[in-house]
C-alpha cells in the first residue's frame, strides 16, 4: 500500500489533490480511499488530506501516521510539527516552493522533490491553486498510476471549460518536478 499525506492551506486544492489521486488509482484498476482533515479553518488555514492506494481493497478509515509520500503545498510547512510527523527513512517528500531558502530537517535521508507549483498554476490556470500541478508532480514518485489515469480523473472531475487547462497543469507539474540532489542541507 502507498500512503500519501497532503498538507497545505485552505484554498490551495489540497483535498481535491487527494481525491484526484484516489480517482486516478481507481481508473487504473487499483483500490484507493481519500479522506480530508479539516479543522474549522477557512481559506488560508491549515488543511491536510490522506490518500491510500493499494492493489487490494482497503479497510483502514483512519488518518495516515507514517506516510510513504509527504506532500507540502507550502515550504513553511517544513517547520510545522504536525506536517512533518511520522516521516520514515524511505519516505519521499514533495514540496511546492518558489525557490526560497528552505531548510530540510535533519536527519533527512528521504528523496525530496521540488517545483514552483504556484507559478505554474498562475501561468496555466490564471490562479494560484496548485492542486492539479501537484498531482502531476506526484506521478514522478508513484509507479502504478499513469498519466492517462490522471488525465481521465481530471476529465471526470472538472467542468468542461476547466479540463484542458488542468490537464496542461498536470503535464507542466510532471515536467517541472525535480529531484533535489542535495539532502539534509540548506538548499537554494
Amino acid at each position: 500500500m502507498i500512503q500519501i499525506r497532503f498538507h497545505g492551506l485552505g484554498g490551495q486544492g489540497v483535498v481535491s489533490s487527494a481525491h484526484l489521486m484516489g480517482k486516478a488509482a481507481i481508473i487504473g484498476k487499483m483500490w484507493a480511499n481519500s479522506l480530508p482533515f479539516f479543522t474549522t479553518s477557512q481559506r488560508g488555514g491549515k488543511v491536510s488530506a490522506y490518500t491510500r492506494i493499494d492493489v487490494n481493497p482497503i479497510d483502514q478509515h483512519c488518518y495516515i501516521y507514517e506516510p510513504d509520500i509527504l506532500v507540502l503545498f507550502h515550504p513553511l510547512l517544513l517547520q510545522d510539527n504536525d506536517a512533518m510527523k511520522g516521516l520514515k527513512v524511505n519516505s519521499k517528500l514533495l514540496i511546492n516552493t518558489a525557490g526560497q531558502r528552505i531548510f530540510i530537517p535533519d536527519p533527512f535521508t528521504q528523496d525530496t522533490y521540488c517545483l514552483d507549483a504556484d507559478e505554474i498554476s498562475r501561468s496555466v490556470l490564471g490562479i494560484p491553486v496548485p492542486s492539479t500541478v501537484m498531482v502531476g508532480a506526484l506521478l514522478r514518485m508513484i509507479e502504478n498510476i499513469t498519466m492517462d489515469n490522471l488525465k481521465n480523473a481530471v476529465e471526470q472531475s472538472f467542468g468542461q471549460r476547466q479540463v484542458a487547462k488542468n490537464i496542461k497543469a498536470i503535464e507542466k507539474g510532471f515536467e517541472s518536478c525535480k529531484l533535489l540532489e542535495l539532502k539534509g542541507e540548506r538548499l537554494k
Binding site: K23, A32, N33, S34, L35, P36, F37, F38, I58, H61
Partner: peptide, 12 residues
C-alpha cells in the same frame, strides 16, 4: 455513518 471518517471519505 461516522461523520467525516465516512461522510467525507472517498472510496470506490
Amino acid at each position: 455513518l461516522d461523520g467525516f471518517f465516512l461522510s467525507h471519505i472517498y472510496e470506490p
